[in-house]
Each structure stands twice: as C-alpha cells, then as structure tokens.
Nucleic acid binder design. Structure first.
Lengths: 197, 197
DNA sequence: TACGATAGAGAACGAACGTTCTCTTGGCAA
DNA sequence: TTGCCAAGAGAACGTTCGTTCTCTATCGTA
C-alpha cells in the first residue's frame, strides 16, 4: 500500500510520544494502538516486534536531533559559532515543557540489560555527535583534544537539565565551552607563532 | 530481630546487583529472593514494596558514591586537587568491568514516567554533588560559575563512558576541568590584582 | 448481486509481574 | 512429649504484557 509510509509514521510518532513520556517498558502495544488509531495487526505488519518499533522511534529521534543541530548551525558562520550553537539548540530544547532528558540516554538506562539493538542505536548516535563536534573543532583550527571535551559538556548538560530540571545547564555548559575554545585557540595561536609554517 | 539489619543489607546488595545489571523493571522480586537467599515474606516484611526496595538501593549507591568521592579527596591537599580527584575517582570506576553508567541516571531514565520517590532520589543525589563541587570551588577561591561547569563535566563523563564504553571520558573531562580551573583562577587573580582589598 | 481479499476490533494465549496466602517445618517453653 | 509461634518455600491471585488468532465488515470487481 502507498500509505504504508504514512501509517508507519503515525505509529512511530505515537510510540515516540508514549515512550518518551512513560518509558518503553511501561507502554503496552495496546496503548500505542490507541494513540495511533491503528489496529494491532497493522502495527505488527509494519513492525515485526516492539523492539523494531523502538529502533524506529530512535531513528526518528536521531533525524530530529540532526535537523535541529543543522538548523542551529545555519545561522552561524564560523566553526566556533557552530560549536556554540549546539548549546543554544540545547537551551531551546530544555525549555520545552515536556523535556525530561535525551531519549537515547533514557532508553540506554532502561534497556541496558536488554535489547542489544537499542544499545547499539544509542552508541551510534552518541558517536555520530562526537564525530560532528570533532569535525567542527578541526575546522576551527583547535587541537583535537577539544572535541571530546565539548561533547562531554553537551552530554552533561542534557542529564543535568533532565534530572535537576530547568534549562540553566545549557548556558553553563556554553560558558564552559567558550572558555575551552578561547584557551585552545590561544594556545594554538601561540604555538603556531613559535613555529610557523 | 537483631539480624534484621544484616538481612536487609543482604537484600539491598542483591537487589543492587540485579537492578544495576538488568534494570529495575526487568528484575522480578523472585529473582531478588533467589540472589539474596531470603524468603519473599522476609523481603516484604523489611521492604513494603518494590519501590521502597529501589529507594533503599539508591541510598546504598549514594553512600558508596560519597565514600568514594571522600576517599579520593583524602589524598588531595588543596581544593583544586580535590576537584580534580573527582575525575580520578571516575576514571577508576569507569574501568570496572561491569560499569555501564551511573545508577541514578539509569534509573531516572527507566522510571521517569513512574515512581516519584525514585525521581526525587536521583534529583537529591545530583543536587548534593553540585553542592559539593560548589563548596570546593569556593574553597579554591574560584568564581562560583565554575561549580556547575565542573559538575556538568562529571555528569557528561559518566554518560559518555557508559554509552560509548571505555574510560577515556574521565581523562578528557579532567583535562577540561584543568583548563577551566586555570582560566578561572587566572581571571580571578588578575581581577583581584586590579582592585585589591 | 455475488465473491474473494483486506483490514479493523478486540478476544485469546502463555508468560511474567508484584503481592499475598497456605502449608510445612523447626525450635523452644512447659 | 505436647503445644505454639516464627519463618521458609513456593503456590496462588489478579493484572498486564507481547504477540497471535478469530470474527466481522468493507470494498473493488464481475
């Protein structure tokens, strides 16, 4: 059917809402059927198991994250500004009323002893983010040690904002990133000044 | 009974092992009974519900964390060294074979839509850590903005180490903390030099 | 109108959960 | 030895889960 994609989207969106609000294990397939307005048979014809549906939800989250990061980077000109734009994106996200953490971190905590597929999705997502930051750090002409440091700040801001509540962690992490960037670029500048070429 | 405390400890230890390895929801009370070698009746006489047992497990984790942080700080003389000792403690922890994240973060992700008691425990634990870091930052004579920044680094290191696997995040976060500390103390020194007294 | 395929609604299934209840055993006072 | 209470083992209860199956209604085609 041509509307398989449409229906699949509706199911994934419904599952995402419920999973994020209540946790994966706490949501039954029946609740997803109700939220999506789609029969169980149809759900299982599109997603062979709850695990597959969970992975599809994580794919959706990944796409949303990537789109959000890309959008925040669009208004930035330099690599340095693109790096800091990550924290502006986080800031806006933390202010959303139903924010309570990164879905990948949450799902990793929930299913760490369970689905290997899900664990792998979380790992791939976080690794991709580390790679994105590393590329920007290289573009900015900063030493590569800076990459993981900024990625750690972004991760820490997410868990801190989730558990303590409130968006302050984004600005705090951003300020730390500014200090790290300034320090790294300064050190780099003086190092290249000493041995040019 | 005088061995109530002993038995309760045995139950909490068993539950901790299983909860941390598989997640709270994935572990049945029957499995805890088997692991602890204690009857269900006895478990329920000491812990009225699984939720209460979960809170007891988190209390134990809190005590272990506090003891570990305190021990790592003992070898340090200055407040600055005590702050950096946090990351040495994390480094050793990340290298433990069964490490897969902070139990509070994991449990928060798992039960965020569920038990209010558990969510509150996680919040209290993270807030206490923020307060501990803030005190050390004050002792070090650094501006208070530094406190949350270092706390965020520690949180980020924990999730990064858990999801990506490997202990590198501890050293990376430590290096960032050194930069932030140096920068803050430098700035503070020049500020007080400009307007002494 | 008659018919075959499709898909919705939800009953049904076996397993597992948290919690309670029953049965049994063992140790101790008299 | 007899009676009694504490506690262990695990059966039982009611619910909920992921998944499958049955029944029924609808629809396009002849």
């Amino acid at each position: 059917m041509i509307d398989d994609t449409l229906t699949a989207n509706r199911i994934v969106e419904a599952a995402d809402r419920l999973f994020y609000a209540r946790g994966v294990q706490a949501v039954g397939m029946d609740a997803i059927r109700g939220e999506a307005g789609v029969s169980l048979k149809r759900i299982y014809s599109l997603f062979p198991s709850k695990d597959d549906l969970t992975v599809a939800v994580l794919h959706r989250r990944r796409d949303q994250w990537n789109a959000g990061i890309a959008a925040s980077a669009e208004n930035a000109e330099t690599a340095r500004e693109k790096l800091l734009a990550i924290f502006d994106f986080l800031d806006a996200w933390f202010r959303e009323p139903d924010f309570h953490g990164c879905a990948f971190i949450n799902v990793f905590g929930e299913l760490s002893g369970g689905s290997e597929q899900v664990r792998q999705q979380a790992r791939k997502q976080k690794q991709a983010f580390v790679d994105y930051v590393a590329q920007l750090v290289e573009d900015a002409g900063a030493p590569e040690e800076l990459g993981p440091q900024i990625a750690i700040l972004a991760e820490g801001a997410q868990t801190t904002a989730a558990i303590l509540g409130g968006p302050e962690a984004a600005a705090q992490a951003r300020a730390a990133a500014v200090t790290l960037l300034d320090s790294a670029l300064e050190r780099n500048a003086s190092a290249t000044a000493q041995q040019p070429g």
